[in-house]
Design a protein around this nucleic acid. Structure first.
Length: 436
RNA sequence: CGGGCCGUAGUAUACCGGUAGUACGUCUGCUUUGGGAGCAGAUAGACCGAGUUCGAUUCUCGGCGGCCCGACCA
């Protein structure tokens, strides 16, 4: 096990129990291990990096354990998502992953949802493992929605989903078990839904921007949902979707919904944008979010209705809004890296500072100082060679690195892509420098 | 789900129808320490099953598992 003492605030703002007293700070060893080489059967860049750096462990195809480092990043991603969902009135709930067959029969998806995991109780009951939660939230809504006075509202959760994918691939990008944020909104009419949909779309843009990602808003097919749907695509060679992107304006369209003539023109290098005439090229994209105007698709089968001002019974209009949380972890790893390892953007980095003591020096004082100031520090106090520590640190990709050696004192490095700037600082300046 | 490639210590690999070897890791000890240190010792491995064979990790078949391409992706 990689023996690194650590201490820091967890993503949700909780203090790690190891940090309550300074005397206990050095007691905990980080539960992970770095690998010099990536396992040979990994092809996806995000999987190679996250496995090598010890952020995740693979249990089986498409199913991963999040080790402390990976979980910290995941928690930070979730914090950003929660803040933005709360800001548009989303109320957090947690629905069951184990779901009765009846709910899925009501919408016809017990048989039509191919990737639905089905399981049987030893007493004969049949259940689904939730791949999405329309079948749960709509009946739930029936218990609370009676009048126009109860509308609109929106509820979301961040939860582990299960989909029996034919072929998991791309490391964390397509798994059989994954973490997802799903928000559901409820409205009296299509106009109100549309208004909220626009709000949610804006919130999504904010989320991806805060996570350091450039996400394109792409018109999407919506599959079996309504045609009113948008995807959020992050361009990356590791993505499995093909997106036609205009070089001039913000036009972007998924290959799934463009016609053949368009594809041929684009492939011949003669694609032109229907909006501005700019050149259109095909790019690989990772779908990190997808929003839908469901309208009455799910309120109909469950008869989710309300009484309007005149006492007339009306059907509820709905929207649903998904973000692949664990997929985002993979996406960020896929994009933010250099030849030596990961390079986390500050808002999602597992720690703010990687503190290394070299050549028998002690960084205990600096560690205590930073920790007291509330800065998240990963402290490498292993008694090993300098090169091994530096290489591990390059691989982990924590934004700031503080190196303490007997000769040079404390030196701060800031890792940004492949650029590195380093300076010597007075230990007392550290807190100021590192603090966001 | 169709097609392809592949399963040897924790990781990466070698050889072989007849005692499975190397590197890194890990553990012990000593010496080291600004870019994956040295010495000494130790630890740890043939996916499962059947068949062929005197003998199978090696060959054959089946299963299971992994990766890639395609299809699918609510």
């Amino acid at each position: 096990m990689l023996q690194i003492s650590f201490c820091g605030k967890l993503g949700a703002g909780l203090i790690s129990p190891f940090c309550d007293k300074l005397s206990l700070m050095l007691q905990s060893k980080l539960f992970t291990k770095t690998l010099r080489e990536a396992p040979k059967d990994e092809e996806a860049l995000n999987a190679k990096l996250l496995l090598r750096a010890g952020f995740v462990d693979k249990l089986m195809a498409g199913v991963y354990t999040f080790l402390p480092l990976g979980l910290r990043v995941l928690n930070k991603i979730e914090t950003v998502i929660r803040e933005e969902m709360n800001a548009i009135g989303g109320q957090e709930v947690l629905m069951p992953a184990l779901q009765p067959k009846e709910n899925w029969e009501a919408t016809g998806r017990w048989n039509s949802f191919e990737a639905l995991y089905k399981t049987t109780s030893r007493f004969g009951g049949e259940y689904a493992l939730g791949p999405t939660h329309e079948e749960i939230i709509v009946p739930l809504g029936k218990k609370f929605i009676f009048s126009y006075k109860d509308l609109p509202f929106a509820a979301y959760q961040i939860q582990t989903k299960f989909r029996d994918e034919k072929r998991p691939k791309g490391g964390l990008l397509r798994g059989r078990e994954f973490k997802m944020k799903d928000l559901y909104s409820f409205h009296t009419d299509p106009e109100d839904l549309l208004k909220y949909y626009a709000k949610a779309l804006a919130a999504y843009k904010k989320i991806f921007k805060r996570l350091g990602l450039k996400a394109l808003v792409v018109e999407a097919s919506g599959g079996t949902f309504s045609k009113y749907s948008h995807e959020f695509q992050v361009l990356s060679p590791g993505g499995e979707d093909l997106i036609y992107v205009c070089s001039k304006c913000d036009f972007a369209k998924n290959k799934e919904i463009v016609d053949e003539a368009f594809v041929r023109a684009a492939e011949a290098g003669k694609g032109s944008c229907p909006n501005c005439g700019g050149k259109v090229t095909a790019e690989n994209g990772i779908e990190v979010g997808n929003i839908f105007q469901l309208n009455t698709k799910y309120s109909d089968p469950f008869a989710l209705k309300y009484k309007d001002e005149k006492g007339e019974e009306k059907i509820v209009y709905m929207g649903c809004y998904g973000i692949g949380v664990s997929r985002l972890l993979g996406t960020i790893a896929e994009i933010y890296n250099d030849e030596k390892g990961l390079v986390w953007p500050k808002p999602v980095a597992p720690f703010a500072v990687h503190l290394l003591e070299l050549n028998g020096a002690s960084a205990k004082k600096i560690y205590a100082e930073l920790t007291k100031a509330g800065i998240e520090v990963l402290y490498d106090d292993r008694k090993i060679s300098a090169g091994a520590k530096l290489n591990d640190s390059d691989l982990l990709g924590i934004p700031y690195r503080i190196i303490v050696s007997p000769k040079t004192g404390a030196r701060v490095e800031f890792k940004e892509r492949s650029k590195k700037t380093a300076k010597l600082v007075n230990p007392k300046q550290l807190v100021k420098l590192v603090r966001p």
